[in-house]
C-alpha cells in the first residue's frame, strides 16, 4: 500500500487539512526500514506525528507497532542485531544519525512501558531520579518537581503522605501512574506509551486514559495499544500497522467509521487479530 497516497488522500479531507495547517510535526518518518537480523520488521514506514495530539498505533501482535515506538527514542538499540535505514526526524533533526546522542534524545522523549517498572526506591526517589541524573541537586527544586509531576499524573492525593515509602507498596495502577509521573519529571516534549494499560484492571485503565486526555494539552503523546476501543476513545489520529507496514493512517474518527483499506476494516470489525 502506498502510504504517500494515503497521506494525500487524508489531506483531501477538509477538516483534517485544517488541523494539519495549525499543527506542527514532532516526528517525520521517511522510508523507515528495520531488521532484526534477517527479519524485516518495519517496511518503508512513512508517518508524520503531530504536536499536542494523541496518536494511537494499533495492529495485531507482531505487526511492528512496539518496534516502531521504540525506534522513536532509540530504545530499540538495546536489542542486539538491529539494523535500520531511512530517516526519523524529530523536530527537524534525524535521530537515526549517529551524531544524535541518545541521552539527549531521551531527555526530550519520555517513555512509559507495558509493565509498570518503578525502581525499588521510595516514591520520592522514583520521581526525583530523572532530574537528579540530569544534574538538578537543589532540594527545594526537586521537592517542587516531585509534587508537580505527581499532581500531573493525578496520583498526588494518593501518595502525598507516604513519599518516603517504597514504590513497590503501591497497586499496579498506582505504579503505572507513578511511572507516568516519573516520565513527566524530566519535562519531556513527547511521551511514548507502549501498551501502558495492558497490565492494568479496568478502573486503573480508565484513570490512565483520563490522564492521557489531560496530558495532551502539554505533551505530544504516541501510544501503542492492542485495544481498539481504547484507541477510538483517546486518540486524535490512528495508524494501523500490519506485518511491518503502515496500512492506513488518518484521524481516528474516520479510520474507525469509514476505513479505506479492506484490511483495516477487517481488523477493526474484529475479523482477525
Amino acid at each position: 500500500m502506498n502510504v504517500t497516497l494515503l497521506r494525500s488522500q487524508s489531506e483531501q479531507d477538509e477538516k483534517t487539512q485544517m488541523t494539519h495547517m495549525e499543527k506542527e510535526f514532532v516526528y517525520k518518518t521517511t522510508d523507515l526500514n528495520l531488521w532484526y537480523g534477517s527479519t524485516h520488521a518495519l517496511k518503508n514506514v512513512n508517518l508524520d506525528l503531530y504536536e499536542n495530539e494523541v496518536t494511537a498505533i494499533i495492529g495485531p501482535s507482531g505487526c511492528g507497532k512496539s518496534t516502531y515506538i521504540k525506534t522513536l527514542n532509540r530504545m530499540i538499540e538495546m536489542v542486539p542485531g538491529v539494523k535500520t535505514s531511512g530517516e526519523i526526524q524529530y523536530r527537524g533533526r534525524n535521530i537515526l544519525d549517529k551524531s544524535y546522542g541518545v541521552e539527549d534524545l531521551r531527555t526530550q522523549v519520555g517513555m512509559v512501558f507495558q509493565k509498570p517498572n518503578p525502581f525499588p526506591k521510595s516514591i520520592y526517589e522514583n520521581i526525583a531520579y530523572g532530574p537528579k541524573i540530569h544534574g538538578i541537586k537543589n532540594k527545594k527544586v526537586l521537592d517542587e518537581i516531585v509534587e508537580k509531576s505527581l499532581r500531573g499524573a493525578a496520583i498526588w492525593d494518593e501518595v502525598k503522605d507516604r513519599l518516603k515509602e517504597n514504590a513497590y507498596g503501591l497497586s499496579g495502577g498506582q505504579q503505572q501512574r507513578l511511572c507516568i509521573a516519573r516520565c513527566l519529571a524530566i519535562e519531556p516534549d513527547v511521551i511514548l506509551m507502549d501498551e501502558p494499560t495492558s497490565a492494568l484492571d479496568p478502573i486503573s485503565t480508565l484513570k490512565v486514559e483520563e490522564l492521557i486526555q489531560e496530558l495532551k494539552k502539554d505533551f505530544s503523546i504516541i501510544i501503542v495499544t492492542h485495544n481498539m476501543q481504547q484507541a477510538a476513545r483517546i486518540s486524535d489520529r490512528t495508524a494501523f500497522f500490519l506485518s511491518g507496514e503502515v496500512v492506513e493512517y488518518r484521524d481516528t474518527t474516520t479510520i474507525f467509521s469509514n476505513p479505506t483499506d479492506k484490511r483495516t476494516e477487517d481488523y477493526i470489525s474484529g475479523r482477525f487479530g
Binding site: M75, E103, F119, G130, R182, I186
Partner: peptide, 15 residues
C-alpha cells in the same frame, strides 16, 4: 536485576 529497571533508567536519558 530485571531488565525493565535498566530500561526505565535509559528511557529517561541516563548514561
Amino acid at each position: 536485576v530485571p531488565k525493565e529497571l535498566r530500561e526505565a533508567s535509559f528511557a529517561m536519558g541516563a548514561t
